[in-house]
Design a protein around this nucleic acid. Structure first.
Lengths: 186, 186
DNA sequence: CGACATATTGAGATCCATCAACCAATGTGG
DNA sequence: CCACATTGGTTGATGGATCTCAATATGTCG
């Protein structure tokens, strides 16, 4: 069973009133293209569950931006280190299109975990999913060259390439925009 | 507070009898240099807490080994994907010196989590720590060149370089042994 | 249409991998 | 105790993948 399946299965196994607790502590919010969900150096007190639109997370590295994640609907969006440790974020998260997301406050979710251990289990499953995703990206960097990484992304997330500017995708893959353009023209 | 501090603080906050539960479900085991803690394609049913010695995790990639982690005392050792999803491991974990470790069976720990929600919280903290470690490694690959990565390792884990063959370290840093040797000779 | 963002293409430079030879330290069997 | 193998580390020459800089093209939206 995949990490995603485990999360879905677990959610379905929860009693309906528990599941409603999650909705009770969150609100739906809209963001305009270009808005920031998380800003650099700020504390990130919220998690965002993408309902529609596209967003990206990036790092300001010496006058150059490194895109570290691209988010699509159904993705859980947060600056993991900043959210988990409640410390200033090194990254920004920005809407690339208009975005609608379900927003949950850190404190409210922590309270929920204290009240119902089931949500600690849910948090664990989500964190495991994130760690597995990171492990895969790390391995891709070690084992695949530029075109290998592009082809893998093309296979896994074809939608993404249609709606995200090339420069962001190149940065996400760890290559220059020019190189990606050349790879694509074959 | 760092991720490591959070784990230690949490452990200290647990009642003594709960802490003893952990010892009750684990055993101390010794491994000879060269022994495998986890083998490729096998299910990894155990986690290992390093008490002494050094070990490494690696991936067999087309007749070449990629070292993906190096473990020192006090590190928690496991093939994360394989342990978490209870699926065949893509990686091996091998003792580089004689190793003594505290070994815990997956099922026993899962049972403990069911019986005492505190251990789910502990698992969550450990998994968060792992994810943060992965995020940092990923960022290092994106932002640092070969010598930058070596210098960072040199600062963070100087002991490591004294006891681990150069080839493994180079592979861990994602560079060739020759390049690492050249970097060092400056 | 003009202006600004995005994408392509070319030429040169750079980092690093690869291949190969060699060296030093350690261990082993006769 | 020595010849030899093994392991781990260094050094040199070469080539390839990819970056950078720069120019040009293509798009898109007021």
């Amino acid at each position: 069973m995949s990490a995603l399946d485990r999360i879905e299965t677990y959610l379905r196994s929860l009693p309906a009133d528990l599941r409603q607790e999650l909705d009770r502590i969150s609100v739906i919010r809209s963001f305009k293209k270009g808005d920031f969900l998380v800003r650099e150096a700020e504390y990130s007190r919220f998690s965002y569950f993408m309902l529609s639109g596209i967003a990206r997370k990036y790092l300001n590295q010496e006058a150059r931006e490194i895109t570290t994640a691209i988010y699509l609907p159904d993705d859980l969006v947060l600056s993991f280190g900043s959210y988990t440790l409640q410390s200033p974020s090194k990254e920004c998260i920005q809407a690339l299109t208009d975005v609608v997301a379900q927003v949950t406050h850190y404190d409210a979710f922590e309270k929920l975990k204290k009240a119902y251990p089931e949500f600690t289990t849910l948090d664990l499953l989500l964190t495991e999913y994130h760690a597995l995703w990171l492990e895969e990206r790390l391995m891709d960097l070690y084992t695949l060259d530029a075109s290998g990484r592009y082809e893998k992304l093309l296979k896994k997330e074809p939608k993404l390439l249609l709606h995200v500017p090339l420069g962001y995708i190149a940065s996400y893959l760890g290559i220059s925009q020019e190189t990606l353009s050349r790879i694509r023209s074959r």
